[in-house]
Design a protein around this nucleic acid. Structure first.
Lengths: 338, 338
DNA sequence: ATGAAAGCGCTAACAC
DNA sequence: GTGTTAGCGCTTTCAT
């Protein structure tokens, strides 16, 4: 390992000067600068990031907690977050909680403030508030993809109006003439996708569509979950002409289930999701969905986190709202035929 | 921030003792232990991981370099790697290189040996050897998912026999009676998927299938890439009855392209991929593919990295081979009808 | 313009 | 059993 001291000796200066040159601070002559740089090159010196972090009192990393990086939505967010973080000189540590509170707490306790300077938290089934409280002198935290801009949480967050997304989805189906619409919620009843479902319900209610309350299934956020839920829905009520899912993965699952059951999509069943993950566009039939500004949200989240890092007791304007969701019509929704 | 010293003062011992108690080393009486633990609890003390890392001379993290975490294969690997790493007490830092050599080098230089104790590298288009050499006194590196177990690279690695995977895919198609088979390679001609294509070609050659040399397209590892390649292939040679893709994503793209062109799968076109990502099983039609032991490879990779960390100049048996790929037949391949 | 020296919070010899 | 002390490699006042 070659250290600052090695460089200093070779360049015949002290570590302070080397440090200054390297970080372009303080004063030094052009000559020393050259000598130092040469020594650095010659010795292939690279700063010890851990040592620097300790001396500076801040690590060069921020963490991203997700329930499972294997859910294809998260990588899309993570990619954007990583780019944003890197732009600001941070490395991104990705933590899978698996929605396990203990794991989440462990991550929180271990990385917050010491290994990483701040924590981005993706919407998760965990009670983040509780985690955060247990966490004491926390380093800053921002909730990403909060679902209800109108209901600000305790913690700083960037919100996406998923309630509106639910409404848009319902409105689209109504417009196409659908009246019997099933719903698949990719979380527990009062879980993270609740707002989306509420938005959906409200719009149906406003259109005086009743009696759909039984046509809902709660499952996990996956193709498989959506597949099972759709089968159940369709078997229980074959008269359904459309299905709304609170996320693209279960929506895709619903499409595949319909196909498996011999119902053409969209002719015999319309399906709409929320998010617009890449797969929504690339799958066949391509999924109609309510697109959500993933990358924008990631950028906002990193920016907010930075502000919180800079100003620890910033307490105002700690809620950022990402651009509104919008309909992306593709090939899984059509006019009601039945 | 509460430090070891705070705890020590409250418990009326020295930092050394606190450190010992916390890490269960050295000797201490049950009474002091209790006092220390109480002080820790009372002050909500949590160790400063950066300070510890500096003192111990090793950071608690390992890094995973991937070209893009948005490719759905990587998260599956990353998830397994993260679990394995955590089991060993490490955090996982995920780095997207975007297949950009400069970014890769930057990551290498910055995290290797200082921020992370070792680096896992996913198969990438980068010349890792070169990066590694440029990297000087590197911390250990292991290449994950090396494609040719029979051709050991300079660097430590865990290999998966992708040449065999290519052969298996070809064999399967031949068995179903296919003779005119197109190929989609999810990388540049001599890129990372070359071995898979070579295996495929060799098996065809052994079966005396000739003249297929033009029926190949090189593209990127995505559904979209496969879609375009398949369109091109099918237009140039409508007589093709099957398509082999070196990865599941392009294979799926080929399936969707066939569908878009009105060719039923598998009746009018069989398609096979390699990897068996989750989507392969969940998409419709479910993709026939050559399954590759992703999680096992991740476990092996982390284990190998740990050995290298422990024994810096270990040089033997630095090549680990993951279990063999195997055919998973699903719904995109069938007997040749045409 | 450069050097000396005191930490950052922790671990690890070694002494008592 | 517990305390003392010297670092880990770097940054950062403060002298000079």
């Amino acid at each position: 390992m070659t250290t600052l001291l090695d460089v200093a000796r070779l360049a015949d200066v002290t570590t302070a000067t080397v440090s200054n040159v390297l970080r372009d601070r303080g004063r030094f002559s052009a000559r020393t600068r050259a000598r130092v740089l040469e020594a650095v090159a010659q010795l292939q010196y690279r700063p010890h990031l851990t040592a620097r972090a300790l001396a500076e009192g801040r690590p060069p990393t921020i963490a991203l907690m997700v329930s499972s990086i294997a859910n294809p939505f998260y990588p899309e967010f993570a990619l954007a977050a990583e780019r944003a973080a890197r732009r600001d000189g941070y490395f991104l540590i990705i933590c899978n909680t698996n929605d396990d509170a203990d794991v989440g707490q462990a991550y929180f306790d271990q990385i917050g403030g010491t290994l990483s300077e701040g924590i981005l938290i993706m919407n998760s089934a965990l009670d983040v508030d509780a985690l955060y409280r247990g966490h004491g002198d926390g380093s800053p935290v921002v909730l990403c993809m909060w679902e209800r801009p109108d209901r600000a949480p305790t913690l700083p967050c960037v919100a996406v109006d998923f309630f509106l997304a639910g409404r848009l989805a319902a409105a689209h189906l109504l417009e196409l003439g659908h009246r019997r619409i099933g719903a698949i919620v990719g979380s527990a009843r009062h879980g993270i996708h609740a707002a989306r479902y509420e938005g959906f319900c409200q719009t149906l209610r406003e259109a005086d569509i009743a009696g759909f309350a039984d046509d809902v299934r709660f499952t996990d956020d996956s193709i498989q979950g959506g597949h099972g839920a759709a089968q159940s829905l369709l078997r229980a009520n074959p008269a359904l002409t459309a299905i709304f899912a609170t996320n693209d993965l279960p929506a895709l699952g619903a499409v595949y289930a319909a196909l498996d059951m011999g119902r053409a999509v969209p002719d015999a069943l319309s399906v709409i999701g929320i998010t617009d993950i890449r797969l929504a566009r690339e799958s066949r039939p391509a999924l109609t969905t309510i697109a959500v500004p993933t990358a924008a949200a990631a950028d906002l989240a990193v920016a907010l986190l930075r502000e919180l890092i800079r100003d620890a007791d910033m307490t105002d304007s700690t809620l950022r709202v990402a651009p509104a969701p919008r309909l992306v019509q593709r090939d899984t929704t059509g006019i009601r035929r039945a």
